[in-house]
Design a protein around this nucleic acid. Structure first.
Length: 823
RNA sequence: GCCCGGGUGGCGGAAUGGCAGACGCAACGGACUUAAAAUUCGUCGGGGAAACCUGUGCGGGUUCGACUCCCGCCCCGGGCACCA
């Protein structure tokens, strides 16, 4: 070690205090304590073979700071950690090496625990568990059975995304750019029997629930957009000369008079039925072709519209008009009813299609001149169908002989009047639609929770009785998926063959496992009571601890984990099994930690920072403070090796300030008191808003003030160490004990600040003339406006500037400035 | 295309509508040292000798006063994407 470096031996200090905290259970959360409870949660990691990523501690340190502060403020804090250990990487590793996933997972978890402990997080380790523990997944399976019991888990033959290389089904969410999220391989559509969870039944509650909770606005918006609620109408168009109807969903029932043709998706069930003989060849060929095109290509907006006329006509229910029926792949089978009424005059896609195929375009909604001008289109073009107008306007050409007249109305009024009319005439009804789809809950994989169902030839799907849970994963020889759509479990005949729980006849177990999102959908409930073997968690403990008061995690989980886990909790609440509907009272998000130069850290780029190396070189406290100082918490930040040296300097200056100064009993000077109390105030507030970078800046200002004097008042030193302790807990504990304190700093009360002392006695007042800074003078804080104004106007230099000019206006901001407006 | 963010020195970034650039990094200069490192003191948006001028992506506006509010653009990051 360098000779000149002071005796800041972080390795020794960190080890010492980590051992002390653990031995004395300093961070134990107490069930049913009289203190105010605070449940503070970070997303538990997948224990990958690469070990902890520097991104993990960004979130963990921030909430560790909050947890430590709240503890010092006298709250009973639950800050738990665990592992989300099912998943593909362990299984792929097993396929490659033949090592059982549980072995590699266990090894990885041990490494993670050691790494997390080395960073000094104040987790209550007694509550740790892994989603792969049979005692945990027993209850994951149990909850699945609840979904089944309530009719929310069902099996359906579904076109699913099939990863050709992983040989398994993927959820829509696991596909990135048309490829498998995990392996990047090609994905195609296949029809397979899948277990589904009916999350769509909770679409409304998932939107409504957002009202009462404190989530970042962008998180709420993203979830709302993902659920994609739209209001409109569902109505039937009869097919001319046939006893068939086409059902359509529209958000613009007001445009019914402008419907000039219809479009079915190529997969629509009516297509083979209603296609005219003359058109059959072309239609069949079009359908064949569109099935081959991947979803990605099909939904490419830039692709030119195409389609074919099927030789049938529908009757527009509002005006009896015969309109042609086409098929086109721009209509999706998976949304609405898979069929649309096309209104080319007021829908861009329909317009594009109609133009290409020469279909009629009839304007029925005209904007006022101002809106048309603003959009850069002419009213003549809109009226003559030369252009499309999707915006607001007044209805025209929209009345019939059967009592519907919406001419002159706005879109909103026309909508409600039309819906009223179609409901009265039993043509259709108001309808709410969602983009959200049900959740494909089956994986044809080994390393996941077995789905606890048995298929009996006589009784059909039968749930495994509660008393037989957990359905344990059996040992297998080969982890490779069968490749025929079955999981490797299907090959274990002694496991697969089981008697039917209902009739006792030979039956077969479900061989699909759950997706890796299953275990993380309820883990926050288990932390409350992790060792319970009678129930997933004791109701009284749930009542005490739930909801989670503060949950921090990545934005990438907004529409997956965060939505799924809300769904599970709301469902369990509806079943009367958990006390609160919304699991998380508050959700914040951290920005990504990028490599040097702003690129994503990855092995291939060679820019991965290993937290162990940083802890070895600088210590956990420097690492923690650096990650918090790197930039605004919610924004992406790039790692900077030089920046960490500055944080190292800061911690060492603190060390020096305490160990090399005379600790005096003197009181602080007025200016020192101002800086001390400003620091106590700013750090207290900034922790709650996660403005941790500015909290650290303020502590640096404190150190700049109190260093180099050779002495420091004890009270100031102690209060400073207290607010430092959540950030740099080891250093703070050590210095605190060196000041002669016996009880650990982690258990000290959080220091209070005096608002009056945060302000200076004297302030500098700026004098402006016409908004331009002219000069400054000092005045006692809190001086009256009149006094300040007088002071400014009495100044000879100002007098000179104002002389001979007309003083139009004076603005006086107490403690800040005087502005003189002259002419 | 739509929905969120964001754009401030060489860099990371600060600023309830009130002195733009806090705090840190880098750089430069001085002290200490035989020397270097470490430490420490100082300088540090641009132009100008100076008074002063200018400056927060671009163009307008509101205001005594705008990084901050409003209108119209441009660029970057993230999410969704033919959702009827």
């Amino acid at each position: 070690m360098d000779l000149n470096v002071n005796d800041y031996d972080f390795k020794k200090i960190e080890k010492k205090w980590q051992t002390f905290w653990e031995k004395n259970s300093i961070f134990k959360a107490e069930d049913f304590s009289k203190k105010k409870k605070f449940y503070c949660l970070v997303e538990f990691p997948y224990p990958s073979g690469d070990g902890l990523h520097v991104g993990h501690p960004r979130s963990y340190t921030a909430l560790d700071i909050v947890a430590r502060k709240r503890r010092m403020q006298g709250e009973n804090v639950l800050f738990p950690m665990g592992f989300d250990s099912f998943g593909l990487p362990a299984e792929n590793y097993a396929i490659k090496t033949g090592v059982h996933p549980s072995i590699i997972t266990k090894k990885n978890m041990e490494k993670f625990v050691a790494q997390l402990k080395s960073l000094g997080f104040s987790f209550d380790w007694d509550r740790a568990f892994s989603t792969t523990d049979p005692e945990y997944y027993r209850w994951t399976q149990w909850i699945f059975l609840k979904f089944y019991e309530k009719g929310l888990a069902y099996k359906a033959k579904m076109p699913i995304n099939w990863c050709l290389s992983c040989k398994t089904g993927l959820a829509n969410e696991e596909i990135v750019d048309g490829c498998c999220e995990r392996c990047g391989g090609d994905v195609e559509k296949r029809e397979i029997e899948q277990w589904m969870l009916k999350i769509t039944a909770y679409a409304e509650k998932l939107i409504e629930g957002l009202n009462g909770i404190d989530f970042l606005e962008k998180i709420k918006t993203q979830q709302i957009n993902w659920i994609g609620r739209s209001e409109g109408a569902e109505l039937d168009f009869e097919i001319d000369g046939m006893n068939e109807k086409i059902r359509v969903y529209t958000t613009r029932p007001d445009t019914l008079f402008g419907a000039t043709y219809m479009v079915l998706s190529p997969e629509h069930r009516l297509v083979p039925k209603i296609t005219a003989e003359n058109n059959r060849n072309a239609v069949e060929e079009y359908c064949r072709k569109s099935l081959k095109i991947s979803d990605l290509e099909r939904t490419d907006l830039k692709k030119e519209k195409n389609g074919v006329f099927i030789g049938a006509y529908a009757i527009n229910p509002v005006n009896g008009e015969k309109i042609p029926v086409w098929i086109a792949d721009y209509v999706l089978t998976s949304y609405g009813s898979g069929a649309i009424m096309a209104v080319p005059s007021h829908d861009k896609r329909d317009f594009e299609f109609a133009e290409k195929f020469g279909l009629p375009i009839r304007c029925i909604n005209c904007p006022d001149k101002a809106s048309a001008d603003a959009a850069g289109v002419s009213i003549e073009d809109i009226l003559s169908g030369k252009t499309c107008w999707p915006g607001e306007g007044r209805l025209i050409n929209s009345s019939n002989a059967c009592g519907l007249d919406i001419n002159g109305l706005s879109i909103a009024d026309a909508k409600s009047k039309t819906i009223e009319w179609i409901e009265k005439n039993e043509i259709g009804k108001a309808k709410v639609n969602y983009k959200l789809r049900d959740w494909v809950f089956s994986r044809q994989r080994y390393w996941g929770e077995p789905i606890p169902m048995i298929k009996c030839p006589k009784c059909g799907w039968t749930p495994v009785p509660e008393s037989d849970l957990p359905v344990l994963l059996p040992d297998v020889e080969k982890y490779q998926p069968a490749g025929n759509g079955e999981s490797p479990l299907a090959a274990i005949s002694e496991w697969v063959n089981a008697p039917c729980p209902k009739c006792g006849e030979p039956a077969r177990r479900e061989t699909d496992t759950m997706p890796n999102w299953a275990g993380s959908s309820w883990y926050f409930l288990r932390y409350v009571d992790p060792k319970n073997n009678k129930r997933f968690a004791d109701m009284e403990k749930l009542k005490y601890w739930m909801p989670v008061d503060w949950y921090n995690g990545g934005m990438e989980h907004t529409t997956l984990h965060l939505l799924y886990s809300r769904f599970w909790n709301i469902f369990l609440h509806d079943c009367g099994l958990v006390p609160v509907s919304e699991p998380y009272a508050k959700r914040t998000s951290h920005g990504m930690l990028l490599g040097e130069g702003g690129e994503k850290m990855s092995k291939s780029r060679g820019n991965v920072i290993n937290p162990d190396d940083v802890v070895n070189a600088y210590g956990a406290d420097v690492f923690r403070v650096y990650e918090m100082f790197i930039g605004p918490f919610d924004q992406a930040a790039s790692w900077d090796a030089k920046g960490i040296a500055g944080t190292d300097r800061f911690i060492r200056r603190i060390w020096k300030m305490i160990t090399e100064s005379e600790i005096s009993d003197a009181v602080t000077t007025r200016e020192q008191a101002r800086i001390l109390h400003s620091t106590l105030k700013k750090v207290s507030h900034d922790i709650e808003s996660l403005d941790l970078n500015t909290a650290i800046s303020q502590m640096m200002i404190f150190v700049n003030e109190f260093s180099g004097e050779g002495k420091i008042p004890r009270a100031a030193a102690e209060d400073f160490l207290k607010v430092l302790s959540p950030f740099a807990p080891h250093t703070a504990e050590e210095l605190w004990s060196r000041l002669g304190n016996e009880s650990p700093i982690s258990l000290q009360p959080w220091p209070e600040y005096d608002e009056a002392l945060t302000k200076a006695d004297e302030v500098e007042i700026l004098v402006q003339i016409n908004g331009k800074p002219k000069l400054r003078f000092t005045a006692p804080a809190g001086s009256s406006k009149d006094a300040l104004l007088k002071n400014a106007l009495d100044n000879p230099e100002i007098k000179k500037s104002v002389e001979g000019k007309e003083l139009l206006k004076t603005i006086c901001v107490p403690d800040r400035l005087v502005n003189l407006v002259i002419k």
